[in-house]
Computed example of a mutant assay.
Amino acid sequence: MADRFYLACLRDTVGSNMSFHCYQGQGYASDINKAHVYTLEEAQNSWNRGRDIDLPVSADAIDTAAVWHVDHQHIPGESVIKDGCKGYVAFLKGQWNGNDVYWLSDLLPTDDFSKARVFAQPDTTDTDLVWLPFTTADAVKRRTFNINLLDRRTMIQSAGLRQPSWLKRQKRRKSSGKTRWNCPCCGKISWQENPYDFDGCRDCACEGHR
Rank of each mutant, 00 (worst) to 15 (best):
V67E: 12
Y88W: 10
V130W: 07
A205S: 14
R4S: 06
S58N: 13
D151R: 15
T127G: 00
A159N: 06
K82C: 06
D83M: 04
V118E: 00
E207Q: 10
D199S: 15
R162S: 10
R152F: 13
Y196D: 13
Y196C: 04
N194E: 11
T64H: 09
D126L: 07
T13C: 10
L132V: 08
I62D: 00
N97P: 02
A120M: 07
H21C: 09
D71A: 05
C185H: 14
W68N: 07
W47S: 02
R172N: 14
H209L: 04
S46Q: 13
G25H: 07
G87C: 04
L129E: 00
S30Q: 07
L10A: 03
E78G: 00
C206Q: 13
S114Y: 04
K171L: 14
D126V: 10
Y38F: 15
C185D: 14
S165V: 13
G208I: 03
D54A: 05
R153H: 13
D112H: 13
I53D: 08
Q26G: 09
L107W: 10
W131K: 12
D71Q: 02
E207C: 00
F91N: 09
W68H: 07
C185R: 12
P133R: 08
L167S: 09
T135Q: 11
G187A: 05
V67F: 14
H72P: 01
A65C: 07
D60Q: 14
T125W: 03
Q170F: 12
V89D: 02
D138E: 11
V80I: 12
K34V: 03
G15N: 07
C22Y: 04
P195Y: 12
G200Q: 10
E42F: 08
K188Y: 01
G200F: 05
V14R: 12
S30E: 05
A29V: 00
L10M: 13
P164E: 04
I147K: 09
K168M: 10
F91A: 00
K34D: 10
R11N: 09
Q157D: 14
R152S: 08
D52Q: 04
E41M: 08
G27V: 05
G160P: 01
R173K: 14
K34W: 03
V130T: 09
A35I: 02
C9W: 02
N148Q: 12
L167K: 12
P195L: 09
Q24Y: 06
S30P: 04
D112T: 10
A65T: 06
L107E: 10
Q73Y: 06
P184Q: 11
Y23D: 04
R49A: 03
L149I: 01
H21P: 00
I189W: 01
N97W: 11
R210D: 02
W166F: 12
P109K: 11
